[in-house]
């Protein structure tokens, strides 16, 4: 598991299945580990692989390719920008790489702030930035045939 820490960001890329609620609990414990008060607002998003491809065929698996090194650097840059813009207190990103099965978690985004507005807006912006500006590529596998996904699903 690749791991990178910057002030305020915990980033993990998982080559194997991960449990988002366990990751979230670990992050919340870290936020209060030094006896500090828990943030007043948190926003969380968990994304899972759907069982159908873009064309409607039953999906066997989603393959996630990434650009090791740039993926981590780019997520750190995105997180720093969004954190500054919304005054966030902490951010966590977990993202799968490799072969992901329908129903498995592919992404967890969590942000902490002092107010619900910055938390929700910052979390949403972080997720959209991951989808468009972090170097990940999805390939859908159906009936033994892989097809690279061009772009993202509807918002």
């Amino acid at each position: 598991m690749a791991e990178a820490h910057r002030p305020g960001l915990v980033l993990r890329l998982h080559p194997e299945a991960f449990e988002p609620l366990v990751a979230l609990a670990e992050w919340q414990q870290q936020l209060t580990a030094a006896g500090s008060e828990a943030p007043a607002a948190e926003a969380h998003f968990i994304g899972r692989v759907r069982g159908r491809s873009a064309s409607g065929a039953a999906l066997e698996a989603l393959e996630l390719e990434h650009y090791p090194g740039m993926t981590e650097a780019q997520i750190e840059r995105i997180a720093a920008t969004i954190s500054r813009r919304h005054g966030l207190l902490a951010l966590r990103v977990d993202h799968r790489v490799g072969r992901v099965l329908p129903g498995e978690a592919i992404v967890l985004v969590a942000v902490a702030a002092d107010r619900r507005g910055p938390a929700q807006r910052g979390g949403q912006e972080l997720l959209e930035a991951l989808k468009h500006d972090a170097p990940f590529w999805k390939r859908e596998w159906s009936n033994g045939v892989g097809r690279w996904v061009e772009g993202n699903t509807a918002y």
């Binding site: 650097a73 780019q74 592919i106 997720l127 468009h132 972090a134 170097p135 996904v149 993202n152």
Partner: peptide
């Protein structure tokens, strides 16, 4: 490992990557 312009002058030792449309998250 950072986004750049197509006409950015390169230096010896640079790593250049061409990235198809991104589909993360």
């Amino acid at each position: 490992q950072a986004f750049a312009a197509l006409d950015q002058p390169l230096q010896p030792g640079d790593e250049v990557a061409f990235l198809p449309p991104i589909s993360g998250g």
